[in-house]
């Protein structure tokens, strides 16, 4: 009888521990519509860990910001398809880029960033995506720093904020010189009417991206560049800008006048002419006024006033010196 009871207990224990083991090894599929489940952990503040290269990685996703971002309607798995079950492999989330297939739809049609990504890759800023240049901007540099907070640029950003994105790097002279970009681009733009309008609070004007585009910035020598000579007419003549603009209008360089002045002698001479005319005329007139005044009051008047003033100043100076000496005496002697 005792042997049977021991055997029963043995098998019961086996059964319990086995089932416990099976319970532990089981993973739960996440299924669809699982954002809330992910946010249960990822919505916590300071949800961080230290990875193999000793960097602190923050996995927090602020749910308020996320839901109001452009990606807020997507499922986590749209962009993180590697996460299919819980617990999930730590590294399975990491390989998402902006160009990843994300199964998102916009107005009923499938949507992805592949085209923009390709365009950006071929632009001068695209070197960031190949990982060769740490200074170059990535998608996230301008689009909010994290895919979970991205806001639509056109609708949310004001003109001066858009400009600030470009200016943050393009006004850094060392960085510009290092990358062989003209360091005076921003300062010359600040002499244009387009900038002055923003400065005085009027936003129907052109900032960097209106002429240079945001994703396909190319040097003017490149035939596909919007600021290439052949394409300028179309760029300046955009719908809300200067419709009807022809080549001659487009060739004026009122946006970056400094560059044109450097290149064209006629503009340099014009500037010099006005300097000479202005200064020469005003000097002559000032002399005329001084001569007139002094004749009405006499040179003596002016010179007397000068001496009176000098006299007063030397008195003041003398008094100050005396005071300082007294102070020094007090400090040293006492």
């Amino acid at each position: 009888m005792q042997k049977v009871i021991t055997l029963i207990f043995f098998f019961l224990t086996l059964l319990v521990s086995a089932s416990a083991g099976i319970y532990q090894a089981q993973k739960f599929p996440l299924g669809v519509d699982n954002t809330q489940r992910c946010l249960r952990c990822h919505g916590m503040h300071n949800f961080t860990y230290v990875d193999s290269s000793k960097t602190l990685v923050n996995l927090t996703v602020d749910s308020t910001i996320f839901f109001s971002s452009v990606h807020g309607k997507l499922q986590c798995q749209s962009c993180h398809p590697g996460i299919t079950e819980y617990p999930h492999n730590l590294l399975a989330a990491g390989k998402t880029t902006c160009a990843s297939e994300c199964h998102a739809t916009k107005e009923g049609k499938p949507y992805d960033h592949k085209t923009v990504y390709e365009t950006f890759l071929h632009s001068v800023h695209g070197k960031s995506l190949t990982g060769k240049d740490p200074d170059a901007p990535t998608c996230l540099t301008c689009h909010g720093g994290s895919a979970h907070v991205v806001q639509p640029v056109k609708k949310v950003m004001k003109v001066d904020e858009k400009m600030a994105l470009c200016v943050s790097c393009h006004s850094n002279r060392e960085m510009m010189v290092k990358h062989k970009v003209d360091p005076n681009a921003v300062s010359s733009y600040e002499r244009s009417f387009h900038w002055k309008a923003i400065h005085y609070g009027y936003d129907k004007t052109a900032v960097c991206e209106n002429c240079h585009t945001s994703h396909s910035v190319l040097p003017p020598e490149n035939p596909y560049s919007t600021v290439n000579t052949a394409n300028l007419e179309k760029t300046c003549g955009q719908t809300n800008c200067h419709p009807g603009a022809k080549m001659n209008f487009a060739m004026s360089n009122a946006n970056h006048l400094e560059f044109m002045v450097e290149k064209k002698p006629v503009l340099r001479y014009e500037e010099k002419f006005f300097y000479v005319l202005t200064d020469g005329t005003l000097m002559m007139l000032a002399v005329g006024i001084v001569l007139d005044v002094q004749r009405k009051f006499g040179w003596i008047f002016l010179i007397k006033r000068l001496f009176v003033w000098l006299d007063r100043k030397t008195d003041q100076l003398g008094n100050m010196i005396v005071k300082v000496l007294k102070f020094i005496k007090k400090v040293l002697v006492d």
């Binding site: 209008f249 006048l257 064209k264 503009l267």
Partner: peptide
């Protein structure tokens, strides 16, 4: 250069 000249 008309516009640039005019601007200056």
């Amino acid at each position: 250069l008309a516009i640039d000249i005019a601007y200056i």
